[in-house]
Design a protein around this nucleic acid. Structure first.
Lengths: 193, 193
DNA sequence: TCTTAATTGAAATGAACGTTTCAAAATTAA
DNA sequence: TTAATTTTGAAACGTTCATTTCAATTAAGA
């Protein structure tokens, strides 16, 4: 029977993510990936099919890290106000820790590839749909609890928050002053109260 | 005496802008630029020095188009409320007309190159500074006119608006429903009143 | 132990990359 | 017309690109 995959797929994805995140898709070469993953060229093609194939897995991996982080935070929050703050705090912490100002892998990829690669476009569509659905749920709860106003529907606020998050990720590329960014998030959230 | 530049530099820049905008910097090849500009390879290197040199001029050209558009709109507005709406309307119109969902050249470039290319980083820093300065000026006027509130300083609101604009440009890549986007902008602006 | 199939390493594929070179053509002012 | 200088075209530069090939190695179940 066959020899099985020996390398740690998660570790490989993590290393590949670091390169793609730093250099972008078009800026990353197969050699970069070979170096970063310590995998053989052939092994990469065996296991991921192509550069794009590997990148799609990297994107999903990155996305799932966020999802689990969000899920964990949302468990600990007992009202919509805390939830929405916890969500933005995750992004803020990411920005503070982003020493070389790479921004968000998904936002960067959206701007680089959505109009060029159908697979990416589909990924971005479902990412947007899921993110907005999550935000809409939180806003809706907040409105039921009378914590958030009802000037706009939960769906409208969700799009606003989704857009604000993307703006925050872009702003965080050049600005990582904690005070300014915290204030920015507060300003974004005042809309809800 | 010397032969002078024969091609229309503005037209060449416009054509180059279209390619860079569509494919991104790393996704654009020298051959793409030769094809788009109908210039000879040598002429490009003679006149722009390098691919990056040409791109820097493209960025400035794109930026100055926006500036003159803003200036024109701001002349026609007689209060801060109209001004800020006119500014966002320029972005909205751009999104509606962006048939192939390229997004904003400057936002895309910021996410692709700021952490990789010092020249780009400098450009983005001065672009951010200028944009925020303009927004701060408008907000400050609005606050003097008692049209905008003073819950936050003009500088704080300017950063918020700058971030919101970037978010809008990112959102516009996948979402170009006029009604949704108009509502999004309205929600962004409610903060000021 | 033998069979089976994946992993691995190294080399090679041809195409595309950004850039350079250089002689010929073009254009201007003297 | 001549001298000066740029534009132009075409080819070539060496490098790097993503991908393929293939024989050797490895590890598991039969």
């Amino acid at each position: 029977m066959p020899k099985t995959e020996t390398f740690n797929r998660n570790q490989v994805l993590q290393n590949a993510t670091a390169v793609f995140h730093k250099k972008g898709y078009n800026g990353t070469s197969m050699q970069d990936l070979v170096d970063a993953t310590s995998l053989n060229r052939s092994s990469i093609y065996n296991s991921f099919g192509s550069k794009l194939g590997m990148f799609m897995e990297v994107l999903s991996h990155y996305q799932s890290l966020y999802k689990s982080q969000m899920g964990k935070e949302l468990m600990h929050s007992h009202n919509a106000s805390n939830m929405i703050k916890a969500i933005f705090d995750i992004y803020l912490k990411d920005i503070y820790g982003d020493r070389d100002r790479k921004g968000c892998l998904i936002v960067n990829c959206k701007s680089e590839m959505t109009n060029q690669e159908p697979l990416i476009k589909s990924f971005m569509e479902q990412n947007q749909e899921q993110t907005i659905a999550m935000l809409e749920d939180v806003v809706h709860n907040g409105q039921m609890e009378k914590i958030f106003n009802e000037d706009q529907t939960a769906a409208q606020y969700a799009l606003y928050l989704y857009s604000s998050i993307q703006g925050l990720r872009m702003t965080g590329i050049l600005t990582n002053n904690e005070e300014e960014l915290k204030n920015l998030v507060n300003t974004v959230l005042t809309v809800l109260y």
